[in-house]
Amino acid sequence: MNRSVLISGCSGGGKSTLLAELGRRGHAIVEEPGRRIVKQELESNGTALPWVDMVAFARRAIGMATADHASAKGQAGWTFFDRGLIDAASALQHLTGEPVLQKLSTAYRYHQTVFLTPPWPEIYTSDPERRHGFDEAIAEYDRLAPTYPTLGYEVVVLPKITVADRADFILDHLEAKE
């Protein structure tokens, strides 16, 4: 069974906080490629930033997500990903028209169930790594939400509940699938 679980959805919807909770509970977690890239690019005065060169940023995210996926193979328990390859490939395809999504999503599969954080304006904030507004976050969510089912994934939209309850919800759902 594939135990690599994607948590995707709206930017600012609580993914990183949720992954931190799953990590505190002893599960392997993988930080969002985009946040890691932004930190690296800001430290090195690089230009592969979403507000400077989104195509270069998406290509770097694909490379990082591919490496993350490979390193999680063979893990005994669940590994939870804050975004992943499909998010990055979807962005690149949206920007350039390059048909990368189907090819990459076939070669690198995640668990059949993908959890999405819906737009949640009450918790949305911007920060040094997230400079876009809530409208842009919603547009990204609206692009991603229908993408996963077309690639053969079951999508479960997470309820707007406490972080601990969201973690319980995910673990209960995955346990029921085993």
Results as ranks from 00 to 15, higher is better:
A167R: 15
R60G: 01
G63D: 15
G63K: 02
D165N: 15
N45C: 03
T47A: 08
A76Y: 11
P99G: 07
D172N: 15
K15D: 02
I86S: 05
W51G: 07
L42P: 04
Q40I: 04
E41L: 00
P119Q: 03
H27I: 06
T117G: 01
S8E: 12
A70M: 14
R36H: 02
I123L: 07
L116E: 01
R59Y: 06
F81W: 12
A20N: 09
M54C: 02
R166Y: 08
G97A: 12
R83S: 13
R131G: 09
Q102T: 14
P128I: 02
Y108V: 11
V52G: 00
T47L: 00
E178F: 11
T162P: 08
V30I: 14
L18W: 01
P159Y: 11
V5Y: 03
A70D: 15
A89Q: 05
W120L: 12
R83G: 08
S90H: 07
S16M: 01
Y124S: 02
T96Y: 06
G133F: 00
G9L: 03
A48C: 06
F57R: 05
G46C: 02
H111M: 06
T106A: 12
I138R: 14
N2K: 14
T150F: 08
E32N: 10
I86Y: 12
V52A: 07
L49Y: 04
Y141K: 05
A139D: 11
R59H: 05
L92K: 12
P119E: 07
L19Q: 03
L85N: 01
G9T: 04
F115V: 00
V5Q: 10
E32P: 10
L116D: 05
G63C: 06
G97L: 11
T147M: 13
K177F: 03
E129R: 03
I62G: 08
P146V: 11
H69C: 09
E32G: 06
S16N: 09
D53R: 05
V114R: 04
F169T: 11
E136P: 03
I170P: 13
P121G: 04
